[in-house]
Design a protein around this nucleic acid. Structure first.
Lengths: 187, 187
DNA sequence: CGTAGATTTCAGGAAGTTCTGAAAAGCCGG
DNA sequence: CCGGCTTTTCAGAACTTCCTGAAATCTACG
């Protein structure tokens, strides 16, 4: 591996975290490298920088493309494919959330739906199904929320985050106003 | 494996998803089984139900305890330890979020902080550090939001989810009111 | 204490994944 | 359609993780 120390530390960390994130070391390193790189890199650049085999890089890039985490970029007068990550970290977040949902949540949701359609044949099955319904309900709320929020443009998403739990205070305020108005009508 | 079909399907699914969630098959199955079970189970019950070795169950339970995902429950007149999952799925969600953050986000955050303290020695390093700063900023916003939201009791959390992106409309309304009031003052 | 029941630890085999070099397949200008 | 450059595929080596049975340890009661 042949990189400035700051970059190397970052790349190595992503490699190690890779396994916790369900991607392998090389894929993590490639991503980290592309992320901090000032210009798009081609496979050979990556081989050079990380000191892994050419074919490993090829498979890694393939996987990152499947995740929509890297973008192909054409460099004039160079036949080799080059890759970058999106500039905007919020955009990266969106892609990441979408892909993880697709892989980690959606399959479970569909299995749950299927199992909830069936008729339980015994008391333990009835209980199990009730528990599945609870889980299904929770996941569905979360994904509905996510579907709404993901459409927000960055600006508003940031504002929403900034607000945090204070939102509920805002909600309370609204409720008080509504109550107040109702009260006046009823009087 | 010796389970009613509904339960079996659920357990098998969790086993398969296990690998995507960074836990192994057996751990996933044990969790699923405890989750749908109407009463706490002991290790032998699990061995019986899943058809895996006793020691495997022991290690699985150990890991689930490390994740705070199962609770030991004492059964009168039975020396064996029994385990359940929390009743409340919202509670489960909280624990899950907390543990995943601890394992998947916090280490990166601390590495980023460290690297941002260093002085870049070259132009590529300067660029890399700027990118790290962007990533750090985003993660910090997200975790701050999370820290606030996780304190909400279930009721309010649910309300917040229900609201979804409409929050921003509420925000807009507030802004309009503020602008209006300001306008009147300035007139 | 001693002992029966319960749990944990651990070495090593099974299963799964990651990585490599070599060979095959694509692609493009001439 | 040839020849050089690039990318992909793939079999198997290297490595990692998972799982088991056997042995060690723990624990509570008589």
């Amino acid at each position: 591996m042949n990189l400035p120390p700051l970059v190397q530390a970052f790349v190595l960390h992503f490699g190690e975290m890779g396994s916790r994130w369900g991607i392998n070391r090389t894929v993590g390193q490639i991503y980290a490298l592309l992320y901090v790189s000032p210009r798009p890199l081609c496979a050979d650049d990556i081989v050079e920088a990380l000191g892994v085999s050419r074919s490993n890089v090829s498979m890694g890039l393939r996987e990152l493309q499947a995740w929509n985490l890297v973008l192909p970029r054409h460099i004039p007068d160079d036949r080799r494919d080059h890759f970058t990550t999106p500039e905007d970290v919020w955009q990266i977040l969106r892609v990441l959330a979408e892909e993880r949902k697709k892989r980690e949540v959606d399959p479970t949701l569909s299995v749950l739906r299927e199992l909830l359609m069936q008729t339980p044949g015994s008391e333990p099955e009835r209980h199990a199904q009730a528990r599945m319904a609870e889980m299904h309900g929770l996941i569905e709320r979360l994904t509905n929320w996510y579907e709404e929020v993901k459409r927000l443009e960055t600006e508003r998403l940031a504002a929403l985050l900034e607000l945090g739990s204070k939102v509920t205070r805002l909600l309370d305020a609204k409720d008080r106003v509504v109550d107040f108005v109702r009260g006046r009508k009823e009087v």
